[in-house]
Design a protein around this nucleic acid. Structure first.
Length: 444
RNA sequence: UCCUCGGUAGCUCAAUGGUAGAGCGCUCGGCUGUUAACCGAAUGGUUGGAGGUUCGAGUCCUCCCCGGGGAGCCA
């Protein structure tokens, strides 16, 4: 007898098989009992009746939610069952029966309660499909870069010098010295790009921002790429291609999960039809003013403005050529208009915020030194970075893609905390709030 | 940091300043096609904390704590 996954069930209609998993829900009608068993790949309904199998019925009837078990039986096509087929249960082995009721009911809970129980919440409802889609997004991004000859590399998480002030950096004690958790691997990727040509990595980055919104995490995952001999236009073309590839791949590979999330995959694929619209920062400002936003040249494009852009285009949209004063020191000035930089942000539709920030980088020593000075940054910590312009500097460009926001958008979940297994937020550095963590520590 | 809403049973929520309630869950009983099953019964409370007003406070006032939403911040 074969042990199979729920995902494979349809291929085994008529055969006797075993599933191993957890009791997700059960329904009883006196002499007939329905067991919903989940195994991570899906949920299958087992059915058994009292007259046909009295012992099994007596054994199964009292089992609580999340009992781990193995069930055996013959698979049958059954339109009435969720998923289209059903198991006539002929054998049942209980592996572990919980002594207390499972905290997550299949009804409604508040976000605070769910986050306190995140380690259990992830077993239920939409959380399983979301995490399976997350896996597919990571694989698609890696697959895209791999096929185009990018070398996967790594940037350090612990960094010695603060790049732009320390207010948004998490400080850690490093043998008596100060070190910081990385906000971005970009500067290091620029160095590896000069060694390897085209590089990427996917890694965690950290922002000590006191942001409390549905788009922000203090720890999140970024896919960053850096390319030697690449300019602004090629850079954005690649981003566009990457996003389209990821969405198309995931819409195909994870159609079942997206359907469970009631995400319209056709709409999603339409959204990423290329080319993506492009507006310059100046055009975006006048477009937004026309839409009623009070915005002047030089103002940041904030959250309500991003939402308007998303509504206007109904697609991911590039906003490019920002005023240099708004952007960090390493971005290359536009030779046609040195007041602005060769940079672009990709804004997601449906209010999911900025997915990508990218730019062509400064490639001459003189410009880089000048822009450090203009940003009132010391040169000493950047000597190694300046070296990249001293030894065979080339035009190069790169970008960072927020993985968690991308996943939230693809899944159509409004809040980023559901797009990541264990979200680190302002008040949560654990499954429970920092306040409750303090209370527990006091007890110990 | 600011704005805003909230904290009542294990969970989700009710309750003119006047006896703290329902649904769900758990438990028990009923039901042979359920889909968060349904029906019946039982269980369940120091109303976030401290102070104040009042004959009387879940409700009003002050302060604090915590959570949700939003803003700002955001390579």
């Amino acid at each position: 007898m074969r042990t199979i996954s729920v995902e494979e069930a349809k291929r085994f209609v008529g055969e006797e098989v075993t599933f191993r998993g957890w009791l997700y829900n059960k329904r009883s009608s006196g002499k007939i009992l329905f067991l919903e068993v989940r195994d991570g790949t899906g949920v299958i309904q087992g059915v058994l009746t009292k007259p046909n199998s009295p012992d099994l019925f007596a054994q199964a009837a009292p089992l609580p939610q999340e009992t781990s078990l193995a069930i055996t039986g013959k698979i049958r096509e059954e339109p009435r069952a969720p998923g289209g087929c059903e198991l006539d249960v002929t054998g049942l082995t209980v592996i572990h029966q919980p002594a207390a009721p499972f905290p997550i009911e299949l009804t409604e809970h508040s976000p605070g309660f769910l986050m306190d129980h995140r380690h259990l919440w992830i077993r239920t409802g939409k959380q399983v499909p979301i995490l399976r889609i997350r896996d597919a997004v990571f694989r698609a991004v890696r697959g895209y870069f791999h096929e185009r000859g990018f070398v996967a590399t790594e940037a350090p998480i612990l960094t010695g010098a603060s790049v732009e002030g320390t207010t948004t950096l998490f400080e850690v004690d490093y043998f008596g010295e100060k070190a910081y958790l990385s906000q971005s691997g970009q500067l290091y990727l620029e160095a590896t790009a000069m060694a390897l040509g085209k590089v990427y990595w996917i890694g965690p980055v950290f922002r000590a921002e006191k942001s409390k919104t549905r788009k922000h995490l203090t720890e999140f995952w970024m896919a960053e790429a850096e390319m030697a001999f690449c300019d602004h236009l090629e850079n954005t073309r690649l981003q566009e291609e990457l996003i389209a590839f990821v969405v198309e791949t995931v819409a195909k590979e994870r159609k079942r999960e997206l359907d469970l999330l009631q995400r319209d995959t056709e709409r999603l694929v339409e959204e990423v039809a290329r080319p993506f619209p492009r507006v310059s920062y100046a055009e975006a400002v006048s477009l937004l003013r026309g839409a009623g936003h009070e915005l002047s040249l030089g103002d940041d494009i904030g959250v309500p403005e991003e939402a308007t852009l998303g509504e206007h285009f109904q697609k991911p949209v590039f906003v490019e050529y920002f005023p240099a004063s708004m952007k960090p020191f390493y971005m290359k000035r536009d030779p046609r208009d040195p007041s602005r930089v060769l940079a672009a942000d990709l804004i997601a539709p449906e209010g999911h915020g900025e997915l990508i920030g990218g730019s062509q980088r400064v490639d001459t020593l003189e410009d880089l030194e000048r822009q450090l000075d203009e940003n009132h940054l010391p040169r000493a910590p950047y000597e190694w970075y300046l070296d990249l312009r001293r030894y065979g500097s080339v035009p190069h460009a790169g970008f960072g893609l927020g993985m968690d926001r991308t996943i939230a958008w693809i899944c159509g979940v409004p809040h980023i905390r559901e797009a990541v297994p264990f979200a680190r937020q302002l008040n949560r550095v654990n499954q429970i709030t920092t306040k409750r963590q303090g209370e527990l520590d006091a007890v110990r």
